[in-house]
Each structure stands twice: as C-alpha cells, then as structure tokens.
C-alpha cells in the first residue's frame, strides 16, 4: 500500500484509484475514490451520490481546463505521473492552482518519488501518494532540500528578485 503524505505529514487514509468502469462494481460505499477523467465524465453523478469522498484524476496528457468549472465540488484532484520523467503534471498543477483557482487537495499519484517532492509542492501539490518502494519517513526530508527558490510558483508566487528588494 502506497503511503500518503499530506501537508508534509504521513496520513493513513485509504483511497481507491479507479481505472475504468469495471472497477465500479467492487467499490465499497464509504471508500474514497479517485475516478479517471473519462469515467468521471460518464459516471460523475453516480459517484457523487455515494456517501464516500470523491475526486478525479487527470493523466499527464489531459487538459485541466476540462474540469475547471467543477473544481470546487471535488474533495480531491489528483494528477498522475506515469513515469517520474514525465514532467507535464507540474504544469497541470500550476494551471489548476494559478489559472483555475483550485484550492482543495491536489494530489500527485503514480511514479512519485522522494526527489521530486519539493518541486511538486512548489507547483501546487499538497498531497503525495508515494510509489510503494519509497521510504516515506525519509522522503519528508525532501521538503527541506532547498530553503529558497528563484522563480514564481504556486507555493511562492513572489519571485526571489521581488523578495530580495523588499
């Protein structure tokens, strides 16, 4: 079972990540579920009618604009990293936060590794479902790798050059 880090601490929440409509049958009613975008678009109403929490997950090629209007209604939005080297999710996160104003939980799922955590957080993720081989306790240290950043980002919109001059 992959460990979930939320706001820089390890939490024990159990979520079920669905891949297709076939997974719906085996769903226990109170489990939190993350539905892929396509499934959400066809079964959104049914998923919302369940008592459990519900969120959607975007794959790295999917456009966050497609859920922009519904964002406030999700308990979680997740972005999948099919491979750690696929960096599209970083842009998706920034768009969700900075362009579409999403303020709820934004979770990185998939090939999520310790050495990405700080960049992911800076781009707007606040929850991380680590790949199962990762040492979650040790991974928490990654948030302190760098104590500053030059650029503007979702976490720190004011770039260093403005803060330096302040």
């Amino acid at each position: 079972m992959a460990t979930l880090i939320k706001n820089r601490s390890i939490v024990s929440e159990s979520w079920q990540t669905l891949n297709s409509a076939d997974d719906l049958a085996a769903l226990s009613p109170d489990a939190g579920v993350l539905a892929p975008l396509a499934l959400w678009q066809t079964h959104g109403a049914a998923l919302r009618a369940r008592p459990g929490k519900v969120g959607v997950w975007l794959n790295s090629h999917e456009d966050p604009a497609s859920i922009a209007k519904e964002l406030p209604s999700f308990d979680v939005v997740a972005v999948n990293f099919p491979k750690f080297a696929d960096g599209r999710g970083y842009s998706i996160a920034r768009l969700l936060r900075e362009r579409y104003g999403y303020t709820g939980e934004l979770r990185a799922i998939g090939d999520v590794l310790r050495d990405q955590l700080q960049d992911l957080e800076r781009c707007g993720f606040d929850a991380f479902e680590l790949r199962s081989d990762q040492d979650a306790q040790a991974a928490l240290g990654a948030f302190a790798d760098f104590s500053n950043q030059y650029q503007t980002s979702a976490l720190q919109p004011v770039p260093l050059f403005r803060r330096r001059l302040a």
Binding site: Y90, S91, D119, L120, R122
Partner: peptide, 14 residues
C-alpha cells in the same frame, strides 16, 4: 541563470 536554476515546473521537460 537564476530563473532557470531549479525551475520547479520545467525540471522534467521532454
């Protein structure tokens, strides 16, 4: 150089 150093969004480009 400063802008590109550890740019969080563009560390894993194609």
């Amino acid at each position: 150089r400063q802008w590109s150093t550890f740019h969080p969004e563009f560390n894993f480009l194609p």
